[in-house]
Each structure stands twice: as C-alpha cells, then as structure tokens.
Design a binder for these strands. Structure first.
Length: 499
RNA sequence: GGAGGCGUAGCUCAGCGGUAGAGCAACGGACUUUUAAUCCGUAGGUCGUGGGUUCGAGCCCCACCGCCUUCACCA
C-alpha cells in the first residue's frame, strides 16, 4: 500500500463513518455564518452566559486534543494575521469542542475531523483562561470532507512549482498570496471607479483578430473551423478602441487580456492584462495628468503610504512625478544628440553592434536601452520619459514643428515601463504611409507597422484628435505590492502541463 | 532557444559511494481550557524518468522530463 493510498484510506474510512451516522460528508446549505475576521472583532465578555452567539464556517487547519476536549483551528479568507496574548502569530480562530457541550453526534464529528475539512460551528464567542479568542462549540455541522492531505501547517508551501500547481492551497497556506490577490482586486476596482468618475466608459472588444495589430509582438494563432480562417489572439486593444473614437465614444477604455507569443520570465506571462484608454480631443499631456492621478489613487486605495517598498529599495510616488525628455536623457547618458547621425553610429559601434542598413531611430533606441534604461533603474521616483524619436512610433502624432519627434511618453518606475501613452495619429494618409513603410532593420514581427486596411478606412471617416494610454496591470500590481515576479500577481500563470 | 541550479515520505528538509533519515501530517493509546500541547506505541519511500560506471549508486557520468535563476525576445 502506498503512502497516498494510506492517507486516502484513512480519510475514506472517516467519510464512511460519517455516512453511517447519517451525516452528509459533503455538506449542505449553511446560512448566516459570520466571517471569522468579524467574529474576532466582537467584544470579549468574561461572563460565560453573556457571550455572543455565533455561527461560523471555515477550514480546519490544526487540531489538538486534550482528553474530552478538542481545539480546532479554523481558517477563512477574512482571517487577519494577528499576534495573540502568548506573543505568537496566529492566522486562525480556534474552536473549543467539549464532549459535554456538543452531544454524541458532535463528538463523532470532532473524532472524524481531518486537517483540510470544512466545518460549521454554532456556539458562543469568548476567551479561554489563557486569553485566546475561542468559539465554544455547541453544535457542529460537517460541511466538506477533504480526501487529500493538506500541506504542513508550519513548514507551509516552499516549492514554487508545487505552489503554482496547487494555487488553491497556496491561497490558504501562503498568506501573501491571498493578500496580494485582494490588493490586485482593489487596484483594478479603483482604476475603474477613477475612470468612471471622469466620464470614461468601459467596453469589450474582440479577442480574436484577423490582423494582430496595435503593438510589436508575435501573436498566438488559432483557427475558426466554420469560416475556415486563421485568426490571431489579440496583442493589443488599440485598433478597436480607436474605431470607437470614430464612432463617437469620446472617453473609452478596456481592461482586458492580451496574448503575446514570447518568452516567459519574471516580468512576462504569455497572457497578461492591459488597460488601454482613449480620450477624444486630448493629447499625451492629458494622459500624463490622468496617469499620475490614477496611480496615486490606486496607492491611496491600498490605504498606505505613498512611499512604497520595492525589493531592497523604495519608490516615492508622491506627485508630481518627474518629467524628462527622451532627447535630454539620451544626451545625458550617451553623450550625443539623437539627431547626430555620425555620433549615434559611432556610439553604437563602440558597443560592438552593427549599424549597417539599420534605421537611425532604431539605432538611437538601442542606445537608449543600453545606456539610458540602466540609469532609469537607479531612480527611486517614477519618471515620465517623453518626446520619442518618431520612427519608433508609427501610430503617434508628430510634435508640432518637430517632424522627427513623436508625442509619446513612457512612465518608468525602477526601470520598469509601467505606462505608455501617445497623442494618437488620426491622419489616415500618414497612417497608411507608415503602415506601408517597414522600418529598415526590423523583422516584421518586431514592427508596429502592420497594415490594417479596415482601420485606415475607419480613420478616413474622421477620428478625433485624441490622447491614448496603455498600462500593464500586472506590472502595476507588482510595483504596488512589492512583488518581484509576475507569477505572483497572476493567480494561474502558464505552466507546462504535468507529464 | 542558450547558460547555471534544483528534483529524497502527503508537506518542510537532512543525507552526497557502503543497511533510506528527522519534524509536521497519518494510525493506536493516555490526558476537560490547550497554544507549533505533551507522553507511549505504529506505519509510511521504484530517492523525477531511463540508461551507464562500480563489488556496491539519492550520491559519480550521459540523456530526457519538470521547476527556479539568468540572458535573448517582449510589456
């Protein structure tokens, strides 16, 4: 008999014992239970018959027996981490099950409990002699049997693979996982309320695209059988949202999943959540103001400081964020002006990269990535980097009187690109030309210039001048919750299937 | 895709050429306010998979699988 069978046999046997007693090991509707976190906030009385009556439900995470009394630790998702009067950290509320109080059936239930079972309790709430908050059980209700042994109550779950493949256990036994997930929900909720307060409306656009446009990324491909056409999973939300601008929806956003068929890393999951929004008659300055306000609102919604820890440093999100132009940063870190063609080529050659047949703006950006981004990583405040080389931004309007500069910014925090915004290009003639002109030196999948005839046709009907913004929600959550890997802000990150 | 590291009981981990170990969990027993309860007893393993070296392999070598880290690509 193997170990697993042994565990299961023991639990199966208890299950059958419950059934023989006429008890349902899989539970029934159990109305009106109070969250354990709320029970813990009830006032304590030391007069036994004045204790408040409570009904509770939760997961059995520890069990101690002392003669004719069991102590069972109950967990639910509202339990805070607290320090008890013995100075110990606790993440559960204990239930005292005394043989004289719960009757024969209750005692049978207590005898057949396993760690991981779900238990309903009716009783009174008070303290033991040692001052530990306790539900003194009067009636027990079996809510669900766990047939599978749960992780060690003290060692917890250490193995990353085990945690990811058993996220449901990770939520229970690794406190930060639930905490971060709830923070993510708060952040997303605050983004929605912030935008709704300002008159933006949320829409849903297609995930299946005939042309994967709006970003530079390799798409996933799929196939529709009835139409017999290949389709792509979207890599961006942009082109549909802009069609909605043409349609008169002046302030529009979508928070949605996008899919990029690229490598996986602590900062990259194949599917991730993007916020994109567009505002008619705005520009990238409008977006800068909005971005700053929205991020600060999210931080405030988490209820803490505006100076947040991240890894071994801190980030000071106190507004206003710093603003630096791309050309100025380039000059500072590379020592050359971005227009200085000879200087840029020389600087690239020094690094040992080829410059042959590669567009000037692409070279500039290679230098930016190598020289400027490391500098940005050293900053402990968010910084808006704005006014990008036009060649990098085929969907962006040029700065007035400066045809080589695009009205675009990226918000860098610790070197991470958190937000990306533009004054959107609404000139269909320029747009079509940009689509047709493949940037020299870039493979097709790296170029944002993918021809979408239908999109150009939409522009020809007149898209208002507009500001547009994109924010990677996962990375925002990482920064605001001090999380170093994207897999810990996504409940179910992609894993290779077992076996 | 490249380079490193890791994979031993349900969980957390020791063991690194010579009889497979501990804590928690489990099973049997004692104990009516415990606090990682304690005490007595019991059981639990194809050491990721497959080859090889060796008198002898969790341990050394090779391949494969999975995860982690890092680089490349990208957000």
């Amino acid at each position: 008999m193997t170990e697993a069978q042994n565990f299961e046999a023991s639990r199966q046997e208890k299950l059958h014992r419950l059934e023989q007693l006429g008890l349902d090991p899989w539970g029934q509707r159990f109305d009106g239970h109070m969250p354990l976190g709320e029970i813990l906030r009830l006032p304590i009385t030391h007069v036994e018959d004045q204790r408040p009556k409570v009904r509770a439900a939760g997961r059995v995470v520890a069990r101690r027996k002392q003669g004719k009394i069991y102590f069972v630790d109950l967990w639910d998702w509202t339990i805070p981490t607290r320090v008890n009067k013995q100075g110990q950290e606790r993440r559960a509320l204990q239930v005292a099950i005394s043989q004289k109080d719960v009757g024969e059936t209750g005692w049978h239930i207590a005898d057949n409990l396993d760690l991981g079972d779900l238990l309903g309790v009716d009783g009174s709430y008070g303290e033991t002699r040692r001052g530990e908050p306790t539900i003194f059980a009067e009636k027990l209700t079996y809510l669900t049997k766990s047939l599978q042994p749960h992780p060690d109550k003290w060692g917890g779950m250490q193995d990353m693979e085990f945690r990811l493949r058993h996220r449901y256990l990770d939520l229970i036994y690794t406190p930060e996982v639930l905490e971060r997930s709830l923070k993510r929900i708060k952040i997303v909720r605050r983004i929605r309320s912030y935008l709704e307060e300002r008159g933006y409306v949320e829409v849903e656009t297609p995930t299946l695209h005939a042309i994967a446009g709006g970003a530079a990324a390799r798409p996933f491909t799929t196939h529709h059988n009835a139409l017999d056409i290949d389709l792509y999973l979207r890599i961006a939300l942009e082109l549909h949202l802009k069609r909605l601008l043409v349609g008169g929806i002046e302030k529009v956003y979508e928070i949605g999943r996008v899919f990029r068929n690229e490598g996986i890393s602590p900062k990259h999951n194949p599917e991730f959540t993007m916020l994109e929004l567009y505002q008619a008659y705005g520009n990238y300055e409008t977006m800068m103001e909005l971005t700053e306000g929205m991020i600060v609102a999210c931080i405030d919604a988490l209820g803490g400081e505006r100076i947040l820890p991240y890894a071994d440093r801190t980030i000071d999100f106190t507004p206003p964020f710093d603003r630096r132009t791309y050309p100025a940063l380039f000059q500072q870190c590379v020592g050359t002006a971005i227009e200085d063609r000879a200087g840029v080529v020389a600087a690239v050659n020094v690094i040992g990269l080829t410059t042959h047949n590669i567009d000037h703006d692409v070279l500039v950006h290679k230098l930016f990535e190598i020289k400027v981004e490391p500098y940005l990583e050293t900053l402990d405040r968010p910084v808006f980097v704005h006014d990008y080389p036009a060649g990098l931004c085929p969907l962006t309007k040029r700065k007035a009187g400066m045809p080589h500069i695009a009205e675009r910014f990226e918000l860098y925090v610790h070197g991470m690109e958190l937000a990306n915004a533009y004054t959107e290009l609404n000139d269909p003639v320029t747009q079509e030309a940009t689509f047709r002109q493949q940037l020299a030196g870039l493979p097709e999948e790296e170029s944002m210039a993918k021809m979408d005839e239908d999109f150009v046709r939409a522009l020809r009907h007149g898209m208002p001048p507009a500001g547009g913004l994109g924010i990677g929600i996962d990375r925002l959550v990482m920064l605001l919750t001090n999380t170093q890997t994207i897999r810990d802000v996504i409940l179910f990150p992609l894993l290779r299937p077992e076996k």
